[in-house]
Amino acid sequence: MMLMEIKDLTVSYGGIKALRSLNIAFEEKSIVSIIGANGAGKSTLLNTIMNLVPAESGEIFFQGKRISDIKSHELIKLGISLVPEGRMLFSHLTVRDNLHLGAYAFFRTLGKKEVRKRAERVYELFPILKERRDQIAGTLSGGQQQMLAIGRALMADPRLLMLDEPSMGLAPMLVKDIFNVIKHLNSQSMSILLIEQNARAALKMSHYAFVLESGRLASQGTGASLLNDEKIKKAYLGG
């Protein structure tokens, strides 16, 4: 069974179609990238999956279950976490509070101890966050904020982690670190849906990728095959 299936999805913003009859499906435990130019509808896709943006028509299935009408705050319980574009941290709360709020939906079922354990796992992944756990999130550097955003999403222990431009505004060294973390998470059988401007880096580590052009699916294939595709090379990989 596919982990996620998107059927005939159309999304409009005030008359402008951001996604047009999009069909996408991918398997569990894979790294899947969505690449495309600015305005191709990549972020809209993630936001529609998360039900932050209403779909005009079409359906979304997660593990065979229709999730199109499930509210955003309940999707996290099904195992879908989003690291949004621009990080969207609770900037005036501490690092620790940001992490704990990432597990807010599970507080009652898990209990404090388990939530702390999860936070410890995030700290293992990003030791700098442990050092800064009492610091106000808005005062962290860009890279640390990105780590915190990923950490917050991991607190829900998702089956599918969606990342919207995690490398944006980061120094190349940090981008490498973040990508290594994504690969590491995938090696622990977490599925990854990644939106990335840096198409080459994204395709290199992706099992599968979809190319969007003005809201339409223009191409798809394994990461390696797209890397060698002449058309893709020209349009997205700088020739």
């Binding site: 932050l52 949004p84 969207m88 941290l89 609770f90 005036h92 709360l93 807010y104 599970f106």
Partner: peptide, 24 residues
Amino acid sequence: TMLGKAMKACAVDPTAARITGINV
């Protein structure tokens, strides 16, 4: 309390609160 912090989180960024599972 977590409830209190979650309430504060809603004011800062309701969208971020939603995606972390807070019923705004």
